[in-house]
């Protein structure tokens, strides 16, 4: 294995899932058989994904570490690299560097209830934790998931939402923004913070994991306050722009904390100690 931290592993796209307009999931298998067997990561970590000829883009690993033999990433086609990644087909080769960053402290959460609150394209970093928890279901108490998107079409992982919905050991609430519903829509209509308030989850022995656009996070935190969640029991991920992923290129810091090394996972208590630079 190379000691050059910038050299990606080669991976082959095993499966592409079109999740929503402009959003797809790639299932990636390491070309190196030994690496495919030995590769390990933990929930919350991220990587740098290469479209050779265009460059690298940063996403979380969206699959669970409990699912061995592959990794998945989910991204929205937005810029040059993501557009190039979206043009790749099953069987084609791309690059991956990682895993980087810290992790959700699942070990510390054993025996606790988990409340997931996600908006839009921010479900992928949480999906990794959700499956990790569900695959080790006995370690946790109640598992509740609130997921919202602008429109019904924008909801990602539709098959998995159905699966979670059908599981007796998961409470799933989905919502779309007002005007985003279809005639067949059976979920909630409303913004995530309002729906959360209506859900009224208990804060007792519960960890809240919140991922979403900044505006959703901004209005969700006060609701969690009202529900009695202490800042130490609320977790989120930061997604500052990165290039190297390993604490050198100088982009992703928030104060003296590097999102790539000290994050991307932060508790709300940790966020409150950081300057507003994210």
């Amino acid at each position: 294995m190379s000691d050059n931290i910038y050299l990606p592993y080669l991976v082959t796209i095993e499966k592409i899932t079109q999740e929503a307009p402009g959003v797809r999931t790639l299932r990636l298998k390491f070309n190196d058989e030994a690496l495919a067997r030995s590769f390990e990561f933990k929930a919350g970590q991220f990587g740098e994904y290469s479209a050779f000829g265009e460059g690298e883009s940063t996403f979380c690993i969206a699959s669970s570490p409990t699912r061995k033999g592959y990794i998945e990433c989910t991204f929205r086609e937005a810029g040059r690299v993501t557009s190039a990644l979206a043009k790749l087909e099953e069987g084609q080769t791309m690059g991956f560097r990682g895993p980087y960053g810290n992790t959700f402290p699942l070990d510390e959460w054993r025996g606790k209830n988990l409340l997931f609150v996600a908006g839009g394209i921010a479900l992928p970093p949480m999906r990794c934790v959700i499956w990790n928890a569900l695959d080790t279901r006995g370690s946790f108490g109640d598992v509740s998931i609130l997921y919202g998107a602008k429109t019904v079409a924008d909801l990602v992982y539709k098959h998995e939402l159905k699966e979670w919905d059908e599981r007796p050991d998961v409470r799933l609430v989905t919502t779309v923004d007002p005007g985003g519903e279809t005639p067949e829509w059976k979920g909630e209509v409303g913004f995530v913070p309002a729906v959360l308030e209506k859900m009224n989850p208990s804060a007792e022995n519960t960890i809240a994991i919140v991922c979403g656009p900044p505006v959703m996070i901004k209005f969700t935190f006060p609701v969690l306050d009202k529900l009695g969640f202490a800042p130490e029991n609320i977790y989120t991920t930061l997604e500052n722009r990165m290039k190297c992923g390993v604490g050198k290129c100088g982009r992703c810091n928030v104060g003296d904390k590097y999102v790539c090394k000290d994050g991307p996972v932060f508790s709300r208590a940790q966020l409150e100690a950081l300057p507003a630079e994210f």
């Binding site: 050779f52 000829g53 460059g55 690298e56 290039k243 050198k248 290129c249 100088g250």
Partner: peptide, 10 residues
Amino acid sequence: CACFDIQENP
């Protein structure tokens, strides 16, 4: 100063 960018040079 050590900040850098990573780019493709096709």
